[in-house]
Amino acid sequence: MLGTVLIAALSTSIMLGVRFGSVPISTADVLAILAGGGDSVLRDIVLNLRLPRVLLGVIVGGGLALSGATFQALLRNPLAEPYILGISGGASLGAVSVIALGWVSQTSWALPLAAFAGALLAIGLVFRVATSTGRAMDVRVLLLSGVVIASFFAACIAFILSISPARTVQTAVLWSMGSLAGAGWGSVILAAAYTLPAAVALAALARPLNLMAIGEETAYYLGANVEGVKRTGLVIAALITAAGVSVAGIIGFVGLVVPHTIRLLIGSDNRVLLPLSFLGGATFLTLADLVARLGPTEIPIGVITAFVGVPIFLVLLRRSLTST
Protein backbone atom coordinates (compact mmCIF):
# COMPACT_ATOMS: atom_id res chain seq x y z
CA MET A 1 0.00 0.00 0.00
CA LEU A 2 2.55 2.57 1.18
CA GLY A 3 4.85 1.23 -1.53
CA THR A 4 2.35 2.15 -4.25
CA VAL A 5 1.79 5.57 -2.72
CA LEU A 6 5.53 6.21 -2.60
CA ILE A 7 6.11 5.08 -6.20
CA ALA A 8 3.34 7.45 -7.32
CA ALA A 9 4.78 10.24 -5.16
CA LEU A 10 8.27 9.69 -6.53
CA SER A 11 7.08 9.70 -10.15
CA THR A 12 5.10 12.89 -9.51
CA SER A 13 8.02 14.62 -7.81
CA ILE A 14 10.39 13.64 -10.62
CA MET A 15 7.97 15.17 -13.12
CA LEU A 16 7.58 18.32 -11.00
CA GLY A 17 11.35 18.57 -10.56
CA VAL A 18 11.85 18.44 -14.32
CA ARG A 19 9.01 20.84 -15.07
CA PHE A 20 9.79 23.66 -12.66
CA GLY A 21 12.76 26.00 -12.44
CA SER A 22 13.55 29.40 -13.89
CA VAL A 23 11.67 28.37 -17.07
CA PRO A 24 8.49 26.34 -16.39
CA ILE A 25 7.91 23.55 -18.90
CA SER A 26 4.58 21.82 -19.44
CA THR A 27 4.13 18.09 -18.83
CA ALA A 28 3.33 17.62 -22.51
CA ASP A 29 6.61 19.30 -23.53
CA VAL A 30 8.59 17.19 -21.05
CA LEU A 31 7.04 14.00 -22.41
CA ALA A 32 7.71 15.11 -25.98
CA ILE A 33 11.36 15.80 -25.12
CA LEU A 34 11.76 12.46 -23.38
CA ALA A 35 10.25 10.82 -26.48
CA GLY A 36 13.01 12.43 -28.58
CA GLY A 37 11.33 15.54 -29.94
CA GLY A 38 10.48 19.02 -28.63
CA ASP A 39 11.97 22.47 -28.81
CA SER A 40 15.80 22.40 -28.85
CA VAL A 41 16.31 25.02 -26.09
CA LEU A 42 13.86 23.27 -23.77
CA ARG A 43 15.42 19.98 -24.78
CA ASP A 44 18.79 21.19 -23.60
CA ILE A 45 17.35 22.41 -20.27
CA VAL A 46 15.52 19.16 -19.61
CA LEU A 47 18.16 16.68 -20.73
CA ASN A 48 21.33 18.42 -19.62
CA LEU A 49 20.25 20.42 -16.57
CA ARG A 50 17.06 19.31 -14.92
CA LEU A 51 16.94 15.58 -15.55
CA PRO A 52 20.45 14.84 -14.23
CA ARG A 53 19.78 17.05 -11.22
CA VAL A 54 16.47 15.35 -10.44
CA LEU A 55 17.94 11.88 -10.94
CA LEU A 56 20.88 12.75 -8.72
CA GLY A 57 18.39 13.80 -6.05
CA VAL A 58 16.59 10.47 -6.43
CA ILE A 59 19.79 8.45 -6.08
CA VAL A 60 21.39 10.49 -3.30
CA GLY A 61 18.16 10.86 -1.30
CA GLY A 62 17.26 7.21 -1.67
CA GLY A 63 20.82 6.16 -0.87
CA LEU A 64 21.02 8.30 2.27
CA ALA A 65 17.72 6.98 3.61
CA LEU A 66 18.72 3.40 2.81
CA SER A 67 22.11 3.85 4.41
CA GLY A 68 20.54 5.45 7.50
CA ALA A 69 18.05 2.59 7.88
CA THR A 70 20.91 0.08 7.61
CA PHE A 71 23.09 1.88 10.15
CA GLN A 72 20.14 2.07 12.56
CA ALA A 73 19.52 -1.67 12.27
CA LEU A 74 23.16 -2.72 12.47
CA LEU A 75 24.19 -0.41 15.28
CA ARG A 76 20.86 -1.07 17.05
CA ASN A 77 20.67 2.65 17.61
CA PRO A 78 17.78 4.88 16.55
CA LEU A 79 20.09 7.91 16.49
CA ALA A 80 22.37 6.35 13.90
CA GLU A 81 22.48 8.15 10.56
CA PRO A 82 24.62 7.88 7.42
CA TYR A 83 27.32 10.25 8.65
CA ILE A 84 27.71 8.62 12.06
CA LEU A 85 31.01 6.89 11.30
CA GLY A 86 32.83 10.14 10.57
CA ILE A 87 32.08 9.90 6.85
CA SER A 88 30.94 13.53 6.62
CA GLY A 89 34.06 14.67 8.47
CA GLY A 90 36.36 12.75 6.11
CA ALA A 91 34.51 13.93 3.02
CA SER A 92 34.56 17.54 4.25
CA LEU A 93 38.28 17.38 4.90
CA GLY A 94 38.86 16.13 1.38
CA ALA A 95 36.60 18.78 -0.12
CA VAL A 96 37.96 21.64 1.97
CA SER A 97 41.55 20.70 1.13
CA VAL A 98 40.81 20.81 -2.58
CA ILE A 99 38.90 24.09 -2.24
CA ALA A 100 41.74 25.64 -0.20
CA LEU A 101 44.31 24.52 -2.76
CA GLY A 102 42.26 26.29 -5.43
CA TRP A 103 41.86 23.18 -7.56
CA VAL A 104 38.09 23.44 -7.78
CA SER A 105 38.02 25.88 -10.66
CA GLN A 106 40.50 23.86 -12.69
CA THR A 107 38.73 20.52 -12.77
CA SER A 108 35.18 19.59 -11.90
CA TRP A 109 36.32 16.12 -10.82
CA ALA A 110 38.77 17.19 -8.13
CA LEU A 111 36.10 18.02 -5.55
CA PRO A 112 33.99 14.83 -5.73
CA LEU A 113 37.12 12.69 -5.91
CA ALA A 114 38.69 14.35 -2.89
CA ALA A 115 35.44 14.12 -0.92
CA PHE A 116 35.10 10.44 -1.83
CA ALA A 117 38.71 9.75 -0.86
CA GLY A 118 38.21 11.57 2.45
CA ALA A 119 35.09 9.53 3.16
CA LEU A 120 36.95 6.30 2.42
CA LEU A 121 39.80 7.41 4.68
CA ALA A 122 37.33 8.01 7.52
CA ILE A 123 35.66 4.61 7.00
CA GLY A 124 39.04 2.88 6.88
CA LEU A 125 40.24 4.54 10.10
CA VAL A 126 37.03 3.85 11.99
CA PHE A 127 36.97 0.17 10.98
CA ARG A 128 40.65 -0.17 11.76
CA VAL A 129 40.11 1.13 15.27
CA ALA A 130 36.97 -0.93 15.86
CA THR A 131 38.57 -4.20 14.78
CA SER A 132 42.04 -3.60 16.22
CA THR A 133 41.29 -5.63 19.35
CA GLY A 134 41.29 -8.72 17.13
CA ARG A 135 37.99 -9.85 18.62
CA ALA A 136 34.47 -9.47 17.30
CA MET A 137 33.64 -5.96 16.16
CA ASP A 138 31.97 -4.07 18.98
CA VAL A 139 29.46 -1.55 17.65
CA ARG A 140 29.94 0.67 20.71
CA VAL A 141 33.64 0.96 19.89
CA LEU A 142 32.69 1.62 16.29
CA LEU A 143 30.35 4.47 17.27
CA LEU A 144 32.88 5.94 19.64
CA SER A 145 35.71 5.82 17.10
CA GLY A 146 33.38 7.42 14.54
CA VAL A 147 32.74 10.33 16.89
CA VAL A 148 36.42 10.70 17.81
CA ILE A 149 37.66 10.55 14.22
CA ALA A 150 34.97 13.01 13.12
CA SER A 151 36.14 15.51 15.71
CA PHE A 152 39.75 15.09 14.58
CA PHE A 153 38.70 15.86 11.01
CA ALA A 154 36.67 18.84 12.25
CA ALA A 155 39.83 20.19 13.87
CA CYS A 156 41.80 19.70 10.62
CA ILE A 157 39.07 21.56 8.71
CA ALA A 158 39.01 24.40 11.24
CA PHE A 159 42.78 24.71 10.91
CA ILE A 160 42.70 24.82 7.09
CA LEU A 161 39.84 27.35 7.07
CA SER A 162 41.52 29.55 9.68
CA ILE A 163 44.49 30.12 7.37
CA SER A 164 42.38 30.48 4.20
CA PRO A 165 40.93 33.61 2.57
CA ALA A 166 37.25 34.44 3.13
CA ARG A 167 36.31 33.34 -0.39
CA THR A 168 37.54 29.81 0.30
CA VAL A 169 35.68 29.71 3.59
CA GLN A 170 32.43 30.66 1.89
CA THR A 171 32.83 28.04 -0.83
CA ALA A 172 33.65 25.39 1.76
CA VAL A 173 30.69 26.29 3.98
CA LEU A 174 28.30 26.23 1.02
CA TRP A 175 29.64 22.85 -0.06
CA SER A 176 29.16 21.47 3.43
CA MET A 177 25.50 22.50 3.41
CA GLY A 178 24.85 20.22 0.46
CA SER A 179 23.56 20.98 -2.99
CA LEU A 180 22.53 19.21 -6.15
CA ALA A 181 23.46 22.27 -8.22
CA GLY A 182 26.60 20.72 -9.67
CA ALA A 183 24.69 17.75 -11.06
CA GLY A 184 25.67 16.41 -14.47
CA TRP A 185 25.39 13.02 -16.07
CA GLY A 186 28.88 12.20 -14.75
CA SER A 187 27.84 12.56 -11.13
CA VAL A 188 24.56 10.73 -11.78
CA ILE A 189 26.47 7.77 -13.19
CA LEU A 190 29.03 7.82 -10.37
CA ALA A 191 26.35 7.89 -7.68
CA ALA A 192 24.22 5.27 -9.45
CA ALA A 193 27.15 2.94 -9.97
CA TYR A 194 27.68 2.80 -6.20
CA THR A 195 24.17 3.14 -4.92
CA LEU A 196 22.08 0.82 -7.07
CA PRO A 197 24.13 -2.41 -6.71
CA ALA A 198 24.61 -1.57 -3.03
CA ALA A 199 20.85 -1.20 -2.61
CA VAL A 200 20.29 -4.67 -4.04
CA ALA A 201 22.98 -6.13 -1.76
CA LEU A 202 21.44 -4.50 1.31
CA ALA A 203 17.98 -5.76 0.39
CA ALA A 204 19.45 -9.29 0.40
CA LEU A 205 20.66 -8.67 3.96
CA ALA A 206 17.20 -7.66 5.18
CA ARG A 207 16.41 -10.88 7.07
CA PRO A 208 19.62 -11.06 9.10
CA LEU A 209 19.30 -7.30 9.70
CA ASN A 210 15.90 -8.00 11.25
CA LEU A 211 17.52 -10.36 13.73
CA MET A 212 19.90 -7.63 14.86
CA ALA A 213 16.90 -5.91 16.47
CA ILE A 214 16.81 -8.63 19.14
CA GLY A 215 20.53 -8.47 19.85
CA GLU A 216 23.71 -9.91 18.40
CA GLU A 217 23.86 -12.86 20.80
CA THR A 218 20.36 -14.09 20.03
CA ALA A 219 20.83 -13.42 16.31
CA TYR A 220 23.89 -15.64 16.46
CA TYR A 221 21.96 -18.43 18.21
CA LEU A 222 19.33 -18.19 15.50
CA GLY A 223 21.98 -19.02 12.93
CA ALA A 224 22.83 -15.56 11.57
CA ASN A 225 26.41 -14.84 10.56
CA VAL A 226 26.46 -11.77 12.79
CA GLU A 227 30.04 -10.65 12.12
CA GLY A 228 29.66 -11.09 8.37
CA VAL A 229 26.38 -9.19 8.27
CA LYS A 230 27.80 -6.36 10.36
CA ARG A 231 30.90 -5.97 8.23
CA THR A 232 29.24 -6.24 4.83
CA GLY A 233 26.27 -4.10 5.87
CA LEU A 234 28.40 -1.34 7.37
CA VAL A 235 30.82 -1.22 4.45
CA ILE A 236 28.03 -1.11 1.86
CA ALA A 237 26.06 1.55 3.74
CA ALA A 238 29.24 3.59 4.23
CA LEU A 239 30.08 3.40 0.51
CA ILE A 240 26.59 4.59 -0.45
CA THR A 241 27.02 7.54 1.89
CA ALA A 242 30.50 8.30 0.57
CA ALA A 243 29.24 8.30 -3.03
CA GLY A 244 26.36 10.59 -2.06
CA VAL A 245 28.57 13.03 -0.15
CA SER A 246 31.09 13.23 -2.95
CA VAL A 247 28.52 14.37 -5.52
CA ALA A 248 26.11 16.39 -3.38
CA GLY A 249 27.92 17.48 -0.21
CA ILE A 250 26.50 16.86 3.23
CA ILE A 251 22.73 16.67 3.23
CA GLY A 252 21.54 16.16 6.75
CA PHE A 253 18.32 14.78 8.04
CA VAL A 254 17.20 12.54 5.15
CA GLY A 255 19.13 9.53 6.44
CA LEU A 256 17.91 9.96 10.01
CA VAL A 257 14.29 10.91 9.62
CA VAL A 258 13.05 9.13 6.51
CA PRO A 259 13.74 5.62 7.91
CA HIS A 260 12.12 6.57 11.22
CA THR A 261 9.07 7.96 9.45
CA ILE A 262 8.69 4.78 7.40
CA ARG A 263 9.21 2.71 10.54
CA LEU A 264 6.46 4.59 12.34
CA LEU A 265 4.14 3.92 9.42
CA ILE A 266 4.85 0.26 8.62
CA GLY A 267 7.02 -1.18 11.42
CA SER A 268 10.61 -2.34 11.47
CA ASP A 269 10.70 -5.32 9.09
CA ASN A 270 13.75 -4.46 6.97
CA ARG A 271 12.43 -6.42 4.00
CA VAL A 272 9.84 -3.64 3.63
CA LEU A 273 11.63 -0.86 5.47
CA LEU A 274 14.73 -0.77 3.26
CA PRO A 275 13.04 -0.45 -0.15
CA LEU A 276 10.43 1.98 1.18
CA SER A 277 13.13 4.09 2.84
CA PHE A 278 14.84 4.33 -0.54
CA LEU A 279 11.61 5.48 -2.22
CA GLY A 280 10.84 7.86 0.66
CA GLY A 281 14.31 9.40 0.70
CA ALA A 282 14.30 9.78 -3.08
CA THR A 283 10.92 11.53 -3.07
CA PHE A 284 11.81 13.73 -0.12
CA LEU A 285 15.11 14.96 -1.55
CA THR A 286 13.67 15.52 -5.03
CA LEU A 287 10.93 17.71 -3.57
CA ALA A 288 13.34 19.48 -1.21
CA ASP A 289 15.62 20.32 -4.13
CA LEU A 290 12.66 21.65 -6.09
CA VAL A 291 11.75 23.98 -3.22
CA ALA A 292 15.42 24.96 -2.76
CA ARG A 293 15.73 26.26 -6.32
CA LEU A 294 12.29 27.88 -6.74
CA GLY A 295 13.18 31.14 -4.93
CA PRO A 296 15.21 34.06 -6.30
CA THR A 297 18.42 32.72 -4.71
CA GLU A 298 19.02 29.04 -4.21
CA ILE A 299 18.68 27.92 -0.59
CA PRO A 300 20.96 25.10 0.67
CA ILE A 301 19.04 21.85 0.37
CA GLY A 302 19.87 20.85 3.94
CA VAL A 303 17.88 23.85 5.15
CA ILE A 304 14.80 22.65 3.28
CA THR A 305 15.14 19.03 4.42
CA ALA A 306 15.24 20.20 8.04
CA PHE A 307 12.50 22.85 7.73
CA VAL A 308 10.10 20.38 6.11
CA GLY A 309 11.26 17.17 7.73
CA VAL A 310 11.26 18.22 11.37
CA PRO A 311 7.56 19.21 11.59
CA ILE A 312 6.44 16.10 9.66
CA PHE A 313 8.50 13.88 11.89
CA LEU A 314 7.32 15.51 15.12
CA VAL A 315 3.67 15.10 14.09
CA LEU A 316 4.21 11.41 13.31
CA LEU A 317 6.15 10.84 16.52
CA ARG A 318 3.44 12.48 18.58
CA ARG A 319 0.75 10.44 16.89
CA SER A 320 2.59 7.16 17.46
CA LEU A 321 3.23 8.00 21.11
CA THR A 322 -0.38 8.90 21.80
CA SER A 323 -1.78 5.85 20.01
CA THR A 324 0.03 3.32 22.24
Partner: peptide, 17 residues
Protein backbone atom coordinates in the same frame (compact mmCIF):
# COMPACT_ATOMS: atom_id res chain seq x y z
CA UNK B 1 14.90 -5.02 21.79
CA UNK B 2 16.22 -2.16 19.64
CA UNK B 3 13.08 -1.44 17.61
CA UNK B 4 9.36 -2.11 18.10
CA UNK B 5 8.45 -5.62 17.04
CA UNK B 6 5.21 -7.59 17.26
CA UNK B 7 5.07 -10.86 19.20
CA UNK B 8 4.24 -12.67 15.98
CA UNK B 9 7.28 -11.19 14.23
CA UNK B 10 9.53 -12.06 17.14
CA UNK B 11 8.36 -15.68 17.29
CA UNK B 12 8.56 -15.83 13.50
CA UNK B 13 12.30 -15.14 13.82
CA UNK B 14 12.57 -18.68 15.12
CA UNK B 15 12.05 -19.79 11.53
CA UNK B 16 15.16 -17.93 10.41
CA UNK B 17 17.45 -21.00 10.27
Amino acid sequence: IAFPLSVRQMVGMGRYP
